[in-house]
């Protein structure tokens, strides 16, 4: 599979990364080089192989569904570039 410049733009949009027109050919080349390297996985017979979901066999831990933490909204918004009254501030999204 080869990535064309249109695909680079589409993927960049999905990833919310602004790319300049000048960057697109370079990125397409780099992505194709990496995808070419990855391609060798097609040699591997993976029929009847389960995908790995956990590196260590263990049962997912469960805990009581109860509030154990919280009530510090000021700490949570403290690092925001824009905040007001314990809310994150963003550009207007609804007209």
């Amino acid at each position: 599979m080869s990535v064309d410049q249109k695909t680079v733009k589409r993927v960049a949009r999905l990833a919310r990364l602004k790319v300049t027109a000048a960057d697109v050919p370079r990125l397409a080349g780099e992505l194709n080089a990496i995808l070419g390297f990855i391609e060798q996985l097609n040699e591997v017979d993976v029929a009847n192989v389960e995908p790995m979901t956990s590196v260590v066999t263990m049962k997912m831990k469960m805990r009581k569904d109860e509030v154990t933490d919280g009530h510090y909204s000021q700490k949570i918004v403290a690092n925001a570039p824009a905040q007001d009254d314990d809310f994150f501030m963003v550009p207007k999204v609804v007209e």
């Binding site: 919310r16 602004k18 690092n79 570039p81 963003v90």
Partner: peptide, 19 residues
């Protein structure tokens, strides 16, 4: 994404700001 922490570069709308 420029909302909760770190760098924010303004844009025309919110998606532009993210990008």
């Amino acid at each position: 994404d420029g909302v909760r922490y770190g760098l924010r570069v303004p844009g025309d709308d919110i998606v532009d700001m993210y990008e």
